[in-house]
Amino acid sequence: MRERSPLKSALQQIATFPAFLYGILLALAGLCVYLTGVFIGFLRLLCQGDGLWLWVADRIVWYSGMPVVAGGLLICYDLFVLFPSKRRTMPVRWAPPSDCGVTVVLSAYNDELSIGAAVEDFKAHPLVRRVIVVDNNSSDRTSQCARAAGALVVNEPLQGYGNCVYRALSEGLSFTDTELTLLCEGDMTFRAYDIEKFLAYLPHADIVNGTRISEQLRERRTQLSTFMYYGNFFAGKLLEVKHLGRGTFTDVGTTYKLCRNQALEVLMPYLNPEINLEFNAHFLDTALAQGLAVVECPITFHNRVGLSKGGNSSNLKALAVGSRMIFGLVAGWRKPRMPRQLAQRDPLQG
């Protein structure tokens, strides 16, 4: 195989540089500096301060324009120079799966109140071959309730959302009679009747990610507060401008997604299961970086059964998770301390 020249590699790196993303961040930084100057000027008038306050406010407001202009230039550079080479020129993909049967994998942690109903909901769907529940060291009767409802149950000993989801995906990959793995949660916020929606989008993608950012498809009182709703939308748009021309994204926090197993085999070695509640953003960002086609699908979102233990439990916790998402998208995700092998199923746990 012929090696690429250093010049060609450098040009390719320039073409994939997320200038739009960094332009937005620079512009936002400049706006924050500007508002700081305005606030200082307001305090000067309120407290009748001396001329030094006015001088400081004036300099802050003046110099705030520099990052705004720099950000605007980066955005224009990406849109008008880099974008034509980033945007996909291939025709609309149409590659239906040869078999629409799915293996459903549900992540669960102290979901005794909901897991039985979730398993029964998915098992009743005609395209579902099996339901696997990955119990992340629950202290209640989650495993017993899942087995009673007819699920295969495995325990993931490493605590954390990322570890649980990674194990769930590896469990789905271990079955060779299905080529599709449907990832979801066991808290009844999602429903099996959306499987047909995922399958309608799948011919165009390697991974179909559910989006909860459809007001008409959300119940009135869900764990997704207004703050989290728009926070997910903002993070989705950062992901979109980072991978400009690769897709439209509005929700990076949802677990519900349908994956081709062939795509998962490519993706899994690059995922870090040690990343916790922001794992879904890491998953999508890494999938796009590996050249996989990701398409969003609007899904219904329902009230949770039981208490939330994740990033949706409070706005403060959601802010912390969202901040880590944004940091990961901008600065890159941390590497795993040690490679993790795909899980081998213990038949005794079924």
Rank of each mutant, 00 (worst) to 15 (best):
43 L>W: 12
62 W>D: 09
266 V>D: 05
194 D>S: 12
185 E>V: 06
136 N>K: 02
22 Y>T: 00
314 S>P: 08
67 P>E: 04
162 G>L: 02
173 L>W: 01
111 D>Y: 05
335 K>R: 15
31 L>I: 07
85 S>M: 13
187 D>G: 06
39 F>I: 04
10 A>T: 09
189 T>K: 03
139 S>H: 11
89 T>E: 13
198 F>T: 05
119 V>E: 05
320 A>Y: 12
161 Y>L: 10
103 T>L: 07
306 G>Y: 07
2 R>K: 09
211 T>V: 05
235 A>S: 12
286 T>N: 10
282 H>V: 08
133 V>S: 10
197 K>I: 07
94 W>E: 14
350 G>C: 14
81 V>F: 14
240 E>F: 04
347 P>M: 01
56 V>Y: 03
255 T>K: 00
201 Y>V: 11
117 A>T: 08
291 G>P: 01
155 N>P: 05
292 L>H: 06
9 S>P: 00
272 N>F: 10
224 L>M: 14
274 E>N: 08
27 A>E: 03
22 Y>M: 00
181 T>I: 06
53 W>T: 03
88 R>N: 15
303 N>Q: 15
325 M>D: 02
182 L>C: 11
285 D>H: 05
24 I>G: 00
295 V>I: 12
155 N>Q: 14
266 V>I: 07
135 D>R: 06
195 I>W: 02
171 E>V: 13
31 L>C: 04
78 D>G: 11
56 V>N: 09
75 I>L: 11
12 Q>V: 00
103 T>Y: 01
328 G>Q: 05
330 V>D: 01
110 N>K: 08
206 D>C: 02
8 K>V: 00
194 D>P: 12
296 E>R: 06
101 G>Q: 11
327 F>D: 11
126 P>G: 08
224 L>P: 01
332 G>H: 11
53 W>H: 12
11 L>R: 09
104 V>L: 05
198 F>Y: 10
329 L>V: 08
233 F>Q: 07
226 T>D: 15
205 A>M: 03
219 E>P: 03
344 Q>F: 09
315 N>M: 11
242 K>S: 04
349 Q>P: 10
192 A>C: 10
36 T>K: 04
190 F>K: 10
207 I>A: 09
113 L>D: 15
128 V>I: 05
304 R>E: 14
186 G>Q: 05
274 E>C: 04
162 G>E: 05
335 K>F: 05
125 H>I: 02
333 W>M: 03
322 G>D: 02
134 V>L: 13
237 K>A: 00
117 A>D: 14
